[in-house]
């Protein structure tokens, strides 16, 4: 199984390129089992949403 160190890189890269099927699968399985990486994944979504709304109202 991939480590948190591997998975967090793939989470970031997943915002910039289409991950392979195997990569997507391993990320999904890891996220189901790991609270810390799930939080990281949500933090990355958070950044994306915050910058899409930049510079705020």
């Amino acid at each position: 199984m991939k480590s948190c160190r591997d998975v967090h890189r793939l989470v970031s890269e997943g915002q910039d390129r289409q991950l392979s099927f195997a990569e997507r699968l391993s990320v999904r399985v890891h996220l189901m089992l790991c609270t810390a990486c799930r939080c990281f994944d949500r933090q990355m979504d958070f950044l994306r949403q915050a910058f899409r709304n930049f510079p705020g109202e």
Binding site: S3, C4, R5, D6, A36, C37, C39, Q43
Partner: peptide, 9 residues
């Protein structure tokens, strides 16, 4: 390969 300090919510 585990987080030293797990990311928060």
């Amino acid at each position: 390969g585990h987080w030293q300090e797990p990311p928060g919510d």
